[in-house]
C-alpha cells in the first residue's frame, strides 16, 4: 500500500523540501517572535496603551512562515 508522499503523488525530494521549507521558516519565525514578544511584554508593563503597536511588531515575522508555506506548496506542485 502506498503511504505518505507516494500516496499523495509527490516525489520524495519535493516532500522533504516542503518539510524543510516549513520547518526552517517556522523556527525562524518562532525565534524572532520570542525576542519581540519578550520585549513587547516589557513595553506593555510600562504602558498598556501600546498593545496595538506591540501586536503589530510581534506578528511581522509571521511573513516568513507564510513564505515557507508558499514555497512548500510550490515544490509539491500544489500551485
Amino acid at each position: 500500500m502506498a503511504t505518505g508522499a507516494e500516496a499523495a503523488g509527490i516525489g520524495a525530494y519535493p516532500a522533504i523540501s516542503a518539510a524543510v521549507a516549513i520547518a526552517v521558516t517556522a523556527l525562524a519565525t518562532a525565534w524572532a517572535q520570542a525576542k519581540i514578544g519578550a520585549a513587547g511584554v516589557g513595553a506593555l508593563a510600562e504602558d498598556d496603551g501600546l498593545f496595538g503597536n506591540v501586536l503589530i511588531l510581534t506578528v511581522i515575522p509571521e511573513t516568513m512562515v507564510i513564505f515557507g508555506l508558499v514555497v512548500a506548496l510550490v515544490v509539491t506542485g500544489f500551485i
Binding site: 509571521e62 507564510i66 513564505f67
Partner: peptide, 12 residues
C-alpha cells in the same frame, strides 16, 4: 507581494 501573500494565512 509579501502583503498579498500574507493572506495565505487564511488558507493555512
Amino acid at each position: 507581494m509579501s502583503n498579498i501573500l500574507s493572506y495565505f494565512r487564511i488558507f493555512g
